[in-house]
Simulated assay, not measured.
Amino acid sequence: MFVFLSQLIQLLFYPLGLSIFLTLIGLLLLKRRGLYKFGITLLVFALSLLWISSTSLVARSMAQSLEFQNLPKEVAAADAIVVLGGATKSHQAPRTMPEVNDAGDRIIYATRLYKDGKAPKIIVSGGRIPWHGDVGTEADHMASLMELFGVPRSALLEESDSMNTRKNAENIKQMLEKEQLNKLILVTSAIHMPRALAIFRRLEIDVVPAPTDFYSVFPYKGKKASFQLSSLLPQVGNLDLTTRAMKEYIGLWVYRLRGWA
């Protein structure tokens, strides 16, 4: 129930959902005597919010504020690599197998770390959200894809009962005690790493960040970052990135409020 409510309530805080909500209220107020100007104000605010959230200036800045908190560095050897879910699409028809989404770098990077000898085990973590209509679990999807990349099934451990990052960490902690594992390498998208890292460390799990799937990049060598007018043009991809960043900030705030991070 918490997962469902958190998904539903957050829609009102995201730019698109909030803009639609304010637009509907604004249109209703236009027909009310004495509230016409307030209705216009809401419409202008909704349009401005949607435009600003769709610019690369805002989207990249918000993403960078999260991603650059844990920049890549040499990863030390550990007992296991943990890969968090959110990187796959289930094998519903007409798909013939599980497929990766734009966070699929998590699977590729974890496989690379395994083949580089950074850990002898990979824990794939992620359940199935019932109302998404998915077939199978995220853990099973990731394990299947990693096998295609040459990771033996004997090296894969599945945690398939969690539906959010907090539950990922709780279930993995139980697995660590059972499997007698200690130090972990945590693989997830760079934009999600600050929240995931805070949750794992709150549970006193010895974890080293290994971020991937970066949206933000450094300027080309020898070229200074400069303001461009095109960064103020709205694009749907920027709106999606702003929403992802807001989801992380809201999630981190809620988790801290509940004592989870």
Rank of each mutant, 00 (worst) to 15 (best):
residue 196 A to L: 05
residue 29 L to S: 09
residue 251 G to P: 09
residue 181 L to W: 04
residue 23 T to M: 13
residue 105 D to Q: 10
residue 44 V to L: 14
residue 158 E to H: 02
residue 168 N to W: 02
residue 195 R to L: 06
residue 132 H to F: 12
residue 73 K to C: 09
residue 105 D to Y: 06
residue 44 V to M: 10
residue 179 E to F: 02
residue 171 N to S: 13
residue 253 W to M: 13
residue 155 A to M: 02
residue 234 P to I: 10
residue 53 S to H: 06
residue 107 I to G: 05
residue 222 G to L: 04
residue 51 W to H: 11
residue 64 Q to P: 06
residue 209 P to A: 02
residue 110 A to Q: 00
residue 20 I to T: 06
residue 83 V to F: 01
residue 9 I to W: 10
residue 110 A to K: 00
residue 15 P to M: 01
residue 66 L to I: 01
residue 31 K to V: 12
residue 219 P to T: 07
residue 44 V to S: 07
residue 159 E to Q: 08
residue 197 L to I: 07
residue 146 M to S: 00
residue 215 Y to W: 14
residue 194 P to W: 02
residue 56 S to M: 08
residue 121 K to H: 11
residue 65 S to W: 00
residue 91 H to M: 13
residue 102 D to N: 15
residue 73 K to I: 08
residue 9 I to R: 04
residue 165 T to A: 03
residue 129 I to H: 07
residue 106 R to G: 05
residue 68 F to E: 15
residue 223 K to L: 14
residue 175 M to E: 09
residue 20 I to H: 04
residue 134 D to K: 10
residue 34 G to L: 03
residue 172 I to P: 00
residue 218 F to H: 15
residue 5 L to Q: 08
residue 231 S to H: 14
residue 243 T to W: 09
residue 2 F to M: 13
residue 12 L to H: 01
residue 174 Q to A: 14
residue 23 T to R: 03
residue 77 A to L: 13
residue 185 I to E: 03
residue 255 Y to R: 09
residue 6 S to F: 05
residue 139 A to N: 00
residue 163 M to E: 11
residue 189 S to I: 03
residue 38 F to K: 14
residue 252 L to C: 04
residue 60 R to G: 12
residue 114 Y to E: 06
